[in-house]
Design a protein around this nucleic acid. Sequence first.
RNA 1: GUGGGUGUAGCUCAGCUGGUAGAGCGCUGCGUUGUGGUCGCAGAUGUCGCGGGUUCGAGUCCCGUCACUCACCCCA
Length: 451
Amino acid sequence: MARPAGLSGFPEWLPDGRLVELEVLDTVRRVFELHGFTPLETRSVEPVDVLLRKGEIDKEVYAVRRLHSEPGDEDALALHFDLTVPFARFVVENASRLDFPLRRYQVQKVWRGERPQEGRFREFTQADIDIVDVDRLATHHDAEMALVMAEVFASLPFLPPATIHVNNRKVLEGFYRGLGVDDVPAVLRAIDKLDKIGPAKVRTLLVESGLSEDVADRVLALAQIRGTDGSVADEVRALGVSDPLLDEGLAELVAVVEAAQRVRPGAIEADLHIARGLDYYTGTVYETTLEGFESFGSICSGGRYDALASDGRTTYPGVGISLGVTRLVSLLLGRDLARATRKVPSAVLVAVVDEESRPASDAVAHALRSRGIPCEVAPRAERFGKQIKHADRRGIPYVWFPDAEGDTVKDIRSGEQVGADATTWTPPDTDLRPRVVAVTDGEAESEEGAS
RNA sequence: GUGGGUGUAGCUCAGCUGGUAGAGCGCUGCGUUGUGGUCGCAGAUGUCGCGGGUUCGAGUCCCGUCACUCACCCCA
């Protein structure tokens, strides 16, 4: 089965794995455009100082330079590590030529120098959507972001059920401020481990970081609240902490969750333990887990940033969410959850009787292709048994036998062989192109699923 | 960056207290001289990750190194 090989952290899929990835990419693009997001691609490199905000030297970025460069003759460049920072740079540079609010999607590779492990790569593809406006950005977009991604997940039938967990930075910061917590990042880091190590150990971490037992208990109680309606706010308030920022955050959070619930019940829920690193997010934050694979980590995350970009005079607030395409595909392939129905696009292998009659086989292929049926002609005029085997190996469902007395086409899965005319014959829709299907328990054992 | 684990056939792996390398799957051929899959028979394939050391002898023990991998960190 397709899986990463070669350089660690730089995954390469076999052809059937790439077909799975393309299915995800095609779906992502279709759904994003269905919601009116406009496509954008930025260059792969940025000046180092664009990527690393001042004081931030521990980001693992790859520097890029010409092999023949001389010291100091060029600005320092680096490969981008996400799509948000380059997009922010692009917005400021092109603000006068863009229309706001700007809805854009961007699907590109990004690079990070971190140590790879399952689901973590050094080169990977992200699919981002963001909405950016000038000065103020309406809050209803926060629900929209999650709903678009929920639609992507719903459009991938081979995916385990996905839940988008939503929280709001203001809730956490307001709550912690109301409790008098000093080291907010340490608390967030501990809370972030809730899924992994459980509440008891998180409580220990919290107490070790300097919180009193009572404060630790309330921090933990907040983190364990979940829900899909206004009752979430009631539960938070019942913990007896009050702060203006907390109230603001709760109102936003409830609005997002209730709006999402109206459109796509169950896909999105408030989850007060979602923290995310404390960098630029200022309000809503998202993380997505797949049912049964919670420990695999988030496959789709993002949030709101009140100052996505700024040119000193104008501020551009934004909200965005990013699907980790490579992480998702690596899970599907690595755990054998989904497979392509075949390794090649061809629906038909046109057999070759002998090299003298190859033009007749080429003519059949041409006729099929002219009607949109992907096919290929046998590479060698071997015994028909070998030509059928050639098709079988690749999962090509039909073999076409040219014959002066009348062509025939054979479904090699059933063995059924019938007379056929290349100008009219059409395979069933389900056989026309490779499809991606969930692997059921019964199929999981056999590699090729010979039917 | 820190700490653990693993490197043997294309793949998954076995290989005892050191004695000169194996299985299953896959692959090739034949049975099946123009129709695959099942079955039977036959066959091919290894710098045992790399370098050094101990030894009469190293896949096995020791040292180093590289790669992969897991955890921490961080995150898609």
